[in-house]
Design a protein around this nucleic acid. Structure first.
Length: 609
RNA sequence: GGCCCCGUAGUGUAGCGGUCUAACACGCAACCCUGUCACGGUUGAGAUCGGCGGUUCGAAUCCGCUCGGGGUCGCCA
């Protein structure tokens, strides 16, 4: 080893010892005759002091040392002089008096500062990701990620789970996300698909009798990216036999809480997670991943307007719509601009518009006069209606009521969007909270307008709730599933279900999804066959590890907890992947590529960043 | 694929039709400095404003296209 200690390990107890350290120059302070260098390595930082008089022949080369140079130093640990300690540094009580210095490598001036936490353009960071990862923020995120993953492995190991690796090269499946394909060299015209998740393998492992399996594993989906979505991402995949939903939920709840207790500093959370049905979530929050850190619940105010003179509302109700809305406490002070932006947001979500009502003045809402009301619909609404509305809504003066009239699907989307925007505008979000909730009883199917057929909401191995099986033939929309999602602060971080384990039941679902027996046998024959050999009842869950780590790290973007993430257009800026390959490589895998006019020479920019 | 935001020295920003031969901070270079820790001081170099085209007497500033980054909808079982 080129070092006897880590820079960050040295303490008062080492005073008097001779140590050999190696690391990077984090910062230097050159005072002429004495140079202070904060030397950084993976363990932390320590101040080393170089006096020209103690190393006379190296004086010149030492003066040339710059940030990010790699040094090896030998010296004695000294207690710092009174008054020159640094309380911000764990090693701040001591310093190293250098006797020998060796420059192991020099460094160009980095493209962005390593020793400061400042905002840098995403593309520059990604291009020089190896330097970005030197920065404290990324270093601590990576270490946190490691700790979390290790904790999960230990936790599950203690509970008799075993981690089993499953294939990366697999069979493309219909349904679900677009697959990443890998051409086969040995079998012309045939392709593997990268796994969207090890779903089928883990179910087969249950048939094999392992009973408790998990895997921390990369999954791949060729879909468009988001701040919380990468084309390759990491799942904690887990499956258990002889369980029902509550067994899986309870175990995972324990796991999450044990993680939070250890790593989620500065946050508060519920010690047991509430459960909410999908129907309730949609009714109260307009979404299946509600953010419970604030109120602003959606309510139904149709009764107030059933016979209203305001035809926009009353006729909508006549056409089967409902009037739903939220009360924004203190919203009466919001400026017109904010109110207009709510309308924009609602329109983007597909609503025709919104009606907002601000209630001003003081005193009981029962004494509201028309002068207290500010609303574009003021002249269409009667005072009685507004008073009735305020009472039902528990609104007080100073509040804002936002109403939307449409079919539930539309009002849910619109009010969800407005609710989130209002919460952030009025700063109602307590950022110290982690509010977890289980969402249950999802619909098993959703109607796919584009393809005019039913598709699986969760995935096609999810079991229906027993009492709803009677609707499978008559009205699939009525069938609820035994699926559950873990949602935290408005973000889905995991989801799972109790699975189907009988061949007949599975075939029935496949048929309902429009998959013929023949296709079913071709694409899912292995599952159907396996179910005939004593498949145990089983269920499981998969968590988005990137999202989980980001949540605990307090990061909004999963890129911040992934060492080498891809850009929004799925490009790796470090290596430039994806890129064209040689004709030889293509011919090996029996592929000929369509000539493209604009064979992108788009990689040019990466050189000059 | 739709909509939206961003792109100015190495980095982060300012400038948003003429006074910009582009400003500020950090960084960088040189010199000075033996106790600093975002060290300090003096001096200096460095961008033609992502690219292309257009409007205009005149463009970093307006318009179009394009490239790149990001957000969002679709999509993501």
């Amino acid at each position: 080893m080129l070092k006897s200690h880590g820079c960050g390990e040295i303490r008062l107890s080492h005073v008097g010892q001779k140590v050999q350290l190696a690391g990077w120059v984090h910062r230097r302070r050159d005072h002429g005759g004495v140079i202070f260098i904060d030397l950084r390595d993976a363990s932390g930082r320590v101040q080393v002091v170089i006096r020209s008089e103690s190393i006379p022949d190296a004086t010149k080369s030492i003066a040339n040392i710059r940030d990010e140079y790699v040094l090896m130093v030998i010296g004695e640990v000294h207690e710092r002089l009174e008054g020159s300690r640094n309380d911000d540094l764990p090693t701040g009580d001591i310093e190293i008096k250098v006797e020998e210095v060796e420059v192991l490598n020099s460094s160009k001036t980095p493209p962005f500062p390593i020793n400061q936490d400042i905002t840098i353009t995403e593309s520059t960071r990604l291009h020089y990701r190896y330097l970005d990862l030197r920065r404290d923020r990324m270093t601590s995120n990576m270490r946190l990620r490691h700790k979390i993953i290790k904790h999960i492995r230990d936790f599950l190991d203690e509970r008799d789970f075993i981690e089993i690796e499953t294939p990366v090269l697999g069979l493309a499946t219909p349904e679900g996300a677009r697959d990443y394909l890998v051409p086969s060299r040995i079998h012309p015209s045939s392709f593997y698909a990268l796994p969207q998740s090890p779903q089928q393998w883990k179910q087969l492992l249950m048939v094999s009798g392992f009973e408790r399996y998990f895997q921390i594993v990369k999954c791949y989906r060729d879909e468009d990216l988001r701040a919380d979505r990468q084309p390759e991402f990491t799942q904690l995949d887990l499956e258990m036999s002889f369980v029902n939903e509550s067994d899986v939920m309870q175990l995972n709840e324990e796991l999450i809480i044990s993680l939070l207790e250890k790593y989620a500093f500065g946050y508060e959370w519920n010690t047991s997670f509430p459960q909410m049905t999908y129907a309730t979530a949609m009714e109260k929050y307009g979404t299946d991943r509600p953010d419970l850190r604030y109120g602003l619940e959606i309510n139904d105010y149709s009764d107030v307007f059933r016979n209203s003179e305001f035809k926009v509302f009353s006729s909508a109700i006549g056409n089967g719509a409902r009037i739903r809305g939220i009360v924004v406490p203190g919203g009466a002070t919001l400026a017109r601009k904010s109110l207009d932006s709510f309308i924009d947001i609602a329109r983007q979500a597909g609503a025709a518009g919104l009606v907002w009502i601000q209630i001003n003045g003081s005193g009981s809402v029962d004494d509201i006069s028309i002068d207290d009301i500010k609303s574009p619909a003021a002249k269409f609404l009667s005072l009685e209606e507004i008073i009735q509305l305020a009472n039902i809504a528990n609104a007080v003066r100073g509040d804002l009521i936002i109403l939307a009239a449409d079919m539930d699907l539309i009002t849910s989307r619109a009010l969800d969007a407005v609710r989130r925007d209002a919460a952030s505008k009025l700063e109602l979000i307590n950022s110290n909270r982690l509010d977890f909730v289980w969402i249950t009883e999802f619909p098993l199917f959703e109607w796919d307008e584009g393809e005019s057929r039913w598709s699986a909401t969760h995935h096609l191995f999810t079991a229906p709730i027993d009492e709803d099986k009677k609707y499978l033939d008559s009205d699939p929309s009525q069938v609820r599933s035994r699926a559950y999602d873990v949602v935290c602060n408005g973000q889905e971080i995991g989801g799972g279900s109790v699975r189907i384990h009988s061949r007949d039941d599975q075939l029935q679902i496949l048929h309902l999804l429009g998959i013929s027996t023949e296709d079913a046998q071709e694409k899912f024959g292995h599952m159907l066959d396996a179910f005939e050999f004593g498949a145990p009842p089983h269920g499981g869950i998969a968590w988005g590890m990137d999202r989980t780590v980001a949540l605990i790290a307090g990061e909004q973007d999963i890129r911040e907890v992934i060492a080498f993430p891809k850009t929004k257009s799925a490009v790796d800026l470090v290596t430039g992947a994806p890129a064209m390959v040689s004709e030889d490589q293509l011919s090996d895998v029996h592929i000929s590529v369509k000539p493209t006019d604009e064979v992108n020479s788009s990689r040019d920019i990466s050189e000059e960043i």
